[in-house]
Computed example of a mutant assay.
Amino acid sequence: MSETHPQRVAAKSRAIAQFKNFRSAALSGPVFLNGETAEILHQEESYSVDEGELVGYVLTLFLLTPEGHHFLFMSNEADRPFLKYLAPDRARLVLKDKYKAGGATDA
């Protein structure tokens, strides 16, 4: 399924909207993710097609907040997204050349 297929474009649009509207605070500490202000460092799409119809879609985003925190955000554009904080060492390992250090919290 091409990147410009209408079903794939619509699914990605819904996933990006979910990300932009997402707000989350950590249960302990000041780590916070705001989809409006986080920078997307890398994105990956995965999807399933059955008889030409899109039956599953997941957008994975690797993010950097203005405060210097890295996150992994996964949206299937319908259900509640998955969010995981990435420690600087983990973010560096996962992102490789796409890694971008953030602020004083990320040495």
Rank of each mutant, 00 (worst) to 15 (best):
S2Q: 04
S2P: 08
T4C: 10
H5L: 11
P6F: 08
P6I: 10
P6C: 10
Q7T: 08
R8N: 11
R8C: 04
R8S: 04
V9T: 14
A11P: 01
A11G: 03
A11E: 03
I16Y: 11
I16M: 11
N21G: 13
N21S: 06
F22D: 06
F22Y: 14
F22K: 07
R23M: 07
A25V: 15
A26C: 08
A26H: 10
L27S: 15
L27C: 08
L27W: 15
L27H: 13
G29H: 07
G29E: 09
P30G: 09
P30K: 10
P30F: 13
F32T: 14
N34R: 07
N34E: 12
G35E: 01
E36R: 13
A38V: 02
I40P: 04
I40M: 05
L41G: 00
L41F: 03
L41C: 03
E44I: 05
E44D: 12
E45R: 10
S48C: 09
S48T: 14
S48N: 14
V49W: 14
D50W: 12
D50Y: 05
G52N: 10
L54V: 07
Y57W: 08
Y57Q: 04
V58H: 09
V58P: 06
L59K: 07
L63D: 00
L64T: 01
L64P: 00
T65Q: 01
P66T: 08
P66E: 08
E67K: 12
E67W: 12
E67P: 05
L72I: 05
F73R: 02
F73I: 06
F73E: 02
M74Y: 10
M74V: 14
N76T: 04
N76F: 01
N76I: 03
E77P: 02
E77D: 08
A78D: 02
A78H: 09
D79A: 14
D79I: 09
R80E: 15
R80N: 11
P81F: 12
P81G: 04
F82V: 12
P88W: 00
R92D: 00
R92M: 02
L93R: 08
L93V: 07
L93K: 10
V94T: 09
V94M: 05
L95E: 00
K96L: 04
K98N: 15
Y99D: 00
K100L: 00
A101E: 06
G102T: 00
G102K: 02
G102M: 02
A104W: 06
T105M: 09
T105I: 14
D106R: 03
A107M: 10
A107L: 13
